[in-house]
Simulated assay, not measured.
Amino acid sequence: MLQRINLEHILFLDIETVPQHPNFEDLDEATQLLYEQKTKYQRKEDFTASQFYDRAGIWAEFGKIVCISVGFFKLQGDTRTFRVTSFHGEEEDILKEFKVLLETHFNRPNHLLCAHNGKEFDFPYIARRMIIHGIELPFKLNLFGKKPWEVPHLDTLELWKFGDYKTFTSLKLMAHVLGIPSPKDDIDGSQVRDVFYEEQDIDRIIIYCEKDTITVAQVFLRLRNEPLLTDLEIKSV
């Protein structure tokens, strides 16, 4: 049961990704062809691979991580705080710093990672980008040989499905139906590419990413039927 999990043993997280380059034309010919093949069935017939390149960030082979935001609970008696921090900069540095966090503070067998749609997106994306950069996977992301019940990952989307695999429920929709303040009051995922490359406003992306991380924690609290975090309980570090 979710209530049996110690909140302090969970690292909540969210990532923001963008295409590896600002424009399709920046890719070499081989990569352009591979992207065209990869997106053949995702694109409408009247969309070229170049016109579809703004979506490249959703694939680890053609995108990169520009921000990882994490949050964790600290419980002291009746006092509850949720601390949020972010890693940003060059992708390799982001991944290495995140790995250090996992290996120094969330390396015990009972420690868990939690994200919304994390099992389908965040966790494999981080792992793939680490492999691409030649970074050895931390234990929490190395799933080889693990049985399903040994995987140290929680996914609020999976928890909300209750065994139903037919539908996808966005974090925004879950927040809405559970009475949680919406995290999408500035930008959404489709705008991150433009904010990063055109506006070059990483601070705006960090704020957006941290709000999603907080919302994942809020959703988890609601799934446990516990009070939501107040603004005073949330600390940016």
Rank of each mutant, 00 (worst) to 15 (best):
H111N: 15
F106W: 12
F123H: 10
P148I: 08
A115N: 07
M130Y: 06
E97L: 04
E90C: 02
T79E: 15
K146C: 02
T156H: 04
D164M: 01
E97A: 14
T104W: 12
F162E: 05
N142C: 06
F121S: 01
E92C: 03
T79S: 12
E92V: 12
F123S: 11
I132C: 03
A127R: 12
L101Y: 10
K96V: 10
T79F: 11
K166G: 15
P109M: 04
G163F: 10
K172I: 06
K166Q: 10
E91L: 12
L157I: 02
E91F: 06
I135S: 05
G163H: 05
V177D: 13
Y125R: 06
I131Y: 08
G118M: 06
E97N: 14
R108I: 05
F87G: 03
E158Q: 12
T156P: 06
L173A: 11
D122R: 07
E158I: 12
F162D: 03
G118A: 07
V177W: 14
R80C: 13
T156E: 08
E91H: 07
F139K: 15
I131E: 11
T167S: 14
V84M: 09
R108H: 11
L143G: 00
E91M: 07
D122A: 07
L178V: 10
E120W: 09
L101N: 04
I131W: 05
V177M: 14
L157K: 09
E92W: 00
K147C: 02
G89S: 06
G163K: 10
K140Q: 15
L113R: 04
P124I: 03
F144V: 05
H105T: 06
H88Y: 15
S170V: 04
K119G: 10
R80D: 02
Y125I: 00
H111A: 00
R108E: 14
F82S: 07
G118Q: 02
P152H: 10
F121N: 01
P124N: 01
E120M: 11
D164C: 05
I131L: 15
R80A: 04
E90P: 03
I94S: 07
K96R: 13
H116D: 01
E97C: 02
M130K: 05
I94H: 09
P138A: 04
E136D: 08
H153K: 10
P148M: 09
R108L: 13
P138L: 10
H105W: 07
H111E: 03
N142Y: 14
E97Q: 13
T79M: 13
A127C: 03
A115S: 14
W149C: 03
Y125A: 02
F123Q: 07
V100P: 00
L154C: 12
V151E: 10
P109D: 09
K161D: 03
A127F: 05
E97Y: 11
I126E: 06
K146W: 06
A175H: 08
R83C: 11
L173S: 09
F144R: 14
M174R: 05
Y165P: 00
P109T: 05
P109R: 11
F121M: 01
V100T: 12
V151R: 11
L112R: 15
W160Q: 06
G134P: 04
A175L: 09
T79R: 15
L157T: 01
G118I: 06
P109Y: 15
K96N: 03
M174L: 15
K96H: 00
A115P: 04
E136L: 09
E90I: 07
R83T: 08
L112S: 04
D122T: 01
L154F: 13
